[in-house]
């Protein structure tokens, strides 16, 4: 009987399967991005989310989609995909194509989809944090009930403008959640080497911002914590800071091809044991929601879907050269020519 009662608090099988599908989709999408990069279809800087899937899935399933605001740095594919951005447009953007989310002008680091509440996609570490607070400022100004998810990495947590923003967010009572995705590395510099105090969650407390550190490798816990925090911020109309412990299995970016410079293979192997995708897989089996066969079918379906996305994006045209001047301004172009 006790077990029955406990079950009532559990997520529905459909929800669990959806989380699994979402996490696996991100993983394979990101793997495919790596393929695109290796094949020269994608260039520049590209940062994938492999290992961190539970984090974005937990948060994006807890907001009101196409209502709340989401903004992040350059590791941004997952956030967009989970908000409902057309994956072909995301892949096309990564390939620099006309059909991309920004017509090939942004690339991997600058995915935007404001219709779905996604405001990028920013390349300067910590630089977008005041912009996110500005979105929340608009909510405060208008008196609407939107919440802003303002994501950053652990490296950004040291930037000066982040503290300016935390101060103003607390001062003006902005409904903004500062989410530090702590994957333990600021590019190739380990947390201990870049942060005087490695407990980054404490950094909200001097401003009187409710702050905590939580685990981001278990999607079910992540979902519960995210929902709790979002509900609080929506109700109280005040900022919140949360440090989420995660780990990226991939390098910092596609150009990071020697991870052993900053971490050992043993450390990576150790961390693979808490792979959030594997963890959820076990739960699905444990709770009899899916058997191995079904899980394999899901994976095959996702792989096929990703393959189609890739092909469709790759078949789409590059931008026309004369589009280079489009959308610098709403109503004019700068002086043309070299």
């Amino acid at each position: 009987m006790a077990k029955q009662a406990e079950k009532k608090n559990l997520e529905s099988p459909a929800e669990l399967e959806q989380y699994y599908r979402d996490m696996l989709f991100i993983r394979h999408f990101e793997e495919k991005c790596n393929v695109a990069y290796r094949q020269g279809k994608a260039g520049g800087y590209m940062h994938v989310y492999i290992g961190m899937e539970a984090l974005a899935v937990g948060w994006m399933h807890s907001i009101k989609k196409a209502h709340d605001y989401v903004i992040t740095a350059y590791r941004d594919h997952a956030h967009a995909l989970l908000l409902g951005t057309d994956p072909v447009a995301v892949m096309a953007e990564i390939m620099g194509r006309k059909a991309g989310t920004a017509g090939g002008k942004g690339g991997s680091m600058h995915i935007y989809d404001p219709k779905n509440g996604f405001y990028g996609g920013w390349g300067i570490v910590g630089g977008h944090i005041p912009l996110g607070a500005g979105l929340a400022f608009a909510s405060r100004y208008r008196g609407d009930d939107k919440v802003t998810l303002n994501f950053m990495g652990d490296g950004a947590a040291n930037q000066g403008v982040v503290y300016e923003t935390l101060n103003m967010a607390a001062l003006y009572e902005l409904p903004c959640i500062f989410i530090i995705e702590n994957n333990e590395f600021a590019m190739g510099t380990r947390l201990e080497y870049h942060a005087a105090d490695t407990e980054l969650w404490k950094r909200g407390t001097p401003f009187g911002i409710k702050s905590e550190r939580i685990d981001g490798m278990d999607v079910l816990q992540m979902k519960k914590d995210a929902q709790r925090i979002i509900d609080w911020v929506r109700k109280e109309g005040k900022p919140y800071l949360v440090e989420i412990m995660t780990y990226r299995y991939a390098g910092h970016g596609a150009a990071d091809n020697d991870r052993q410079l900053y971490r050992t293979k043993e450390e990576e192997a150790e961390n693979l044991k808490r792979d959030p995708v594997e963890k959820l897989k076990h739960i699905l089996i444990e709770r009899n929601i899916a058997n191995e066969e079904k899980l394999e079918a899901i994976e095959a379906e996702i792989l096929e879907r990703v393959e189609k996305i890739y092909e469709e994006a790759d078949a789409s045209p590059h931008p026309d050269v004369d589009e280079v001047y489009d959308n610098i301004y709403t109503d004019m172009t700068p002086e043309k020519g070299h």
């Binding site: 912009l131 607070a133 500005g134 400022f137 608009a138 300016e164 103003m168």
Partner: peptide, 15 residues
Amino acid sequence: AGFAGIATGAAMAGL
């Protein structure tokens, strides 16, 4: 930097 950025974010949201 902080208030220039917050104002920019507010403008992105239509203010």
